[in-house]
Design a protein around this nucleic acid. Structure first.
Length: 551
RNA sequence: GUUUCGGUAGCUCAGCUGGAUAGAGCAACGCCCUUCUAAGGCGUCGGCCGGGGGUUCGAAUCCCUCCCGGAAUGCCA
């Protein structure tokens, strides 16, 4: 029997007891919570306190009556007792608790897969930065969050597609082409002024240089030059971006090109659809979408008076396309500066046939970067930014991924760059990875001492210490942590869990010698540690952090 | 002005579907390696949980209100 089932049975037994005592009323919710402090039991119930007013009795007294009547024989309860001011604390049978070790060891890294997603087809879109320059630290947060959430949702049983929307059409791309062209001409010895809204980052110069290396001065006086730089410049920068993301442990299943929306006439068709269904009107020469009918604060222009589209228009077509591809859930992860965009796109999505609530938008707050105590402003246009590449090279992937994964999505983060670069050893990621490496090292020692670590015990008679059972109880909590993390779209819940598991292990390790002359005891502890190691690895993988065997 | 996110230890942040003495890391101080990795453990120090009201047996958590900070408020993307 699994822990979840047992929990239900215990609730049933509570219900029976309450009925017997005459306290039960229809609609009364019986809840079991896991106390923070394990000395208060594996589960506890506040039911006596809830009943106090209805029954007009002191909660402590009611609790005592319940405890008296509670039949613990069939529900693996070893002890049930009352605590002030009226909590009922339940202690489970140790033999039952140790079952979790077998569950984990028999399933290995498959352990913990949930069926929360039950056939849902989920599309998660994240990063989606215009390919007009290098990724910076803010994008890194988006990449990290999107990737971690994707992994978590997948583990929770959703059918996940990870998608990147490539803005390879529109004004910014023209500016990019002009910027590269200007740099290219400079390299060819023709001083050229950068366009007004040009991009000044070093990656633009590098891109131009690459074209020069390959084609020489071929595009100096060439009427196709602009088209060439547009086409290849985007590809060039996109390749860099893909590489950076991949090195950051972030990959995508679908790279969706905005250009193809136009090529397939989807934007025009979407506008047509909106017109035909009476969702639009003309005003001052522009075409407006009645988003205010769907909770947006005002209507939005989708075709400007000069006949061109606003940026939302292709976005609507894009999201409509997602619907047509059969997804039952859509999640967009966007930066904090896009929060005004939520209402209009959800409104538009309903107009094109999306069920209300099908699109969820997770907003990531900004990362404030501090250096020498001062804020470093991030700007792609100016080219002054801490790039993802710099971070990967100087800090390393694991510390950054863990750092981002520790924070909830909607907290404003301060990142002290001097600290991140210098004191990497103090990053909590090492604490957690060290736990994994330590366990591995124990196994190496055990092997060399002749223990058969491939044939670990499945019944436990010698595990008894508090530290061991704290570890066991945390192992049992993993599924719950994963579930909460998935439901709340909160990767940092997994990270918090990892931290407490690592902490419980380190504490256990310091308290007792694993490998001793007592063969049975040693083998049982090894089984416990194997399960711990597995969970650490699974959980670290969920946030995109490696689990090294040696440090 | 409006919308939105935040305000918890010296710093960076958890805890927020109400529960038991408010947690972690870093910083400061003190112990613990003849034994499986000391990137570790144990302990001390440190909090009007932004202010004020309210709901409740019980509020960091829910409601109201005010204050402070970030972001957004384009026929830019």
């Amino acid at each position: 029997m699994k822990l979840q089932e047992l929990k239900l049975k215990i609730k049933d037994e509570f219900k029976n007891t309450l009925i017997e005592l005459g306290y039960f009323e229809e609609g009364l919710q019986i809840e079991l919570e896991s106390p923070k402090d394990k000395s208060n039991g594996d589960y506890s119930s506040n039911i006596a306190m809830k009943l106090a007013r209805i029954a007009r009795k002191a909660p402590f007294k009611i609790a005592e009556e319940i405890v008296e009547k509670f039949d613990k024989t069939e529900v693996f309860v070893s002890e049930i007792k009352v605590a002030n001011p009226g909590f009922i604390n339940i202690y489970l049978d140790k033999a039952f608790l140790t079952e979790i070790i077998n569950d984990i060891n028999s399933q290995g890294e498959e352990y913990g897969t949930l069926d929360l997603g039950k056939g849902e087809r989920l599309n998660i879109e994240y990063v989606s930065v215009n390919p007009t320059g290098s990724l910076h630290i803010g994008h890194a947060r988006g990449a990290s969050a999107g990737d971690s959430l994707s992994r978590i949702m997948k583990k929770a049983g959703y059918d996940v597609t990870r998608e990147y929307y490539v803005n390879d059409a529109g004004n910014q791309i023209n500016n990019l082409a002009l910027s590269i062209q200007a740099r290219y001409l400079e390299i060819c010895g023709i001083p050229t002024e950068m366009p007004k809204d040009g991009y000044h980052g070093p990656e633009i110069i590098e891109s131009a240089k690459r074209f020069f290396d390959e084609f020489g001065t071929k595009f100096v006086n060439n009427k196709n030059a602009f088209e060439f730089f547009k086409e290849n410049g985007v590809q060039n920068l996109l390749n860099e971006l893909i590489k950076d993301l991949k090195d950051f442990g972030v990959e995508f299943d679908v790279w969706f090109s905005e250009k193809t929306l136009y090529e397939n006439n989807l934007v025009a068709k979407t506008v047509e659809f909106l017109k035909e269904n009476n969702f639009t009107y003309e005003f001052e020469g522009a075409l407006w979408l009645k988003t205010s009918n769907y909770n947006d604060e005002k209507d939005r222009v989708i075709v400007k008076s000069d006949g061109t589209y606003t940026y939302v228009t292709p976005d609507i077509a894009y999201h409509k396309n997602k619907l047509e591809r059969g997804y039952t859930m859509l999640i967009d992860i966007l930066g904090g500066d896009h929060h005004g965009y939520i209402d209009r796109i959800t409104a538009a999505l309903e107009m094109v046939g999306g069920k209300s609530g099908i699109l969820e938008i997770e907003i990531l707050q900004m990362v404030k970067v501090l250096q020498n105590g001062e804020e470093v402003k991030m700007s792609k246009r100016s080219g002054k930014a801490i790039t993802l590449r710099d971070l990967i090279d100087e800090v390393g992937v694991d510390p950054i991924r863990y750092f981002f994964a520790m924070r909830s999505l909607n907290t404003h983060m301060d990142l002290d760059l001097d600290l991140a670069l210098k004191q990497t050893n103090e990053n909590p990621v090492y604490y957690v990875q060290y736990a994994h490496a330590r366990i591995n090292s124990i196994f190496n020692t055990a092997k060399s001492k002749g223990f058969n670590v491939d044939d670990l015990p499945t019944t436990f008679t010698t595990l008894s210490s508090d530290k061991a059972f704290e570890l066991i109880s945390l192992l049992a909590n993993f599924e719950d942590a994963l579930r909460q993390s998935a439901i709340q779209r909160a990767p940092h819940k997994v990270t918090n869990y990892i931290n407490s598991l690592a902490s419980a292990f380190h504490s256990f390790y310091n308290d007792e010698q694993v490998i001793t002359a007592d063969h049975t005891n040693t083998m049982e502890r090894l089984a416990l540690l194997k399960a711990t190691k597995t969970i650490l690895k699974i959980a670290l993988n969920l946030v995109g952090v490696s689990a090294p065997n040696k440090m």
